[in-house]
Simulated assay, not measured.
Amino acid sequence: MSGHLLMGALLTGILAGYGIAIPVGAVGAYLVGLAARERFAVAASAAFGVAVVDGAYALLAVLGGAGLAEPLRPIAVPLGYLSAGALVLLAGLTLLRAVRRYRGPLTVSASSPVRAFLGLLALTAINPATLVYFLALILGRGAEGGGALFVLGALLASASWQLLLVCGGGLLGRALTGARGRLVIAIVSAVLMLVLAVAALTGGSPVG
């Protein structure tokens, strides 16, 4: 395979990764809020959890092609309800932790990098729209090869964008260093997640 085709596959993967990652939905809002109140290692681990799912769905799309589209249709609605429920739970936990920290003394982070990674990985994984998105791209590209580089490009793009959100959240957290400022960030993040959960129940995409 020529170098031009390989480079084209990599660039297509990068563009695809940014295309699915940049629209800020519940995951983006949660990452910003998480980075504002937690240490960098926790928020970065959560960001990598999102990127791993984007890369895995890109890989499934490359390997499965059109054969994956039909089996997804019957479970799309149940997954939407599951995703909405997860968002409501996540919003509630965010508010609960924020209120506890506001009322009590500042403590060491209650979250761990592993827990943050697994939590965001699970939340992103239950969004079937991500897989459908990559399937559509693969079917549009045709079988031109370079699948591994396409997946790598999607993974790198998603990871870089999620980390950018984390850095932005970290800067926001340093700007609002007081307990009240962090509480406001958590409340805004949780309310946005609840709004997106309602959107998921009415036909919108819950995460992104």
Rank of each mutant, 00 (worst) to 15 (best):
V207T: 15
T124I: 03
Y18K: 09
S109M: 04
A29E: 00
R73K: 14
V42H: 03
G153H: 04
I185N: 00
R182F: 06
S83I: 00
G140S: 12
G203R: 05
L68C: 01
L10R: 08
A159N: 08
H4G: 13
P71W: 09
V24C: 06
G168T: 04
L156C: 06
A136N: 11
A35Y: 03
L59W: 15
T124N: 08
P78Y: 06
H4M: 13
V88M: 14
L118D: 02
L31Q: 10
A197Q: 09
L163Y: 03
M7T: 15
M193I: 09
V24F: 09
V108A: 13
G153E: 03
A125D: 05
A58H: 04
F150N: 01
L90P: 06
S189R: 03
R39C: 08
Y18N: 07
G28D: 06
L194D: 10
L6D: 13
G55D: 05
V99G: 04
L131S: 00
A86Y: 11
V151G: 08
G145V: 03
V42R: 03
I20W: 10
A56L: 15
Y102H: 15
L121D: 04
A143D: 15
A98M: 07
S189W: 01
P113W: 07
R39F: 07
P105F: 11
G147S: 03
I126M: 08
G80T: 05
A122C: 09
V198D: 12
Y18A: 11
E144C: 11
T12L: 15
V151R: 03
L96M: 14
V99R: 14
V188K: 05
I138W: 07
A199K: 13
G145K: 02
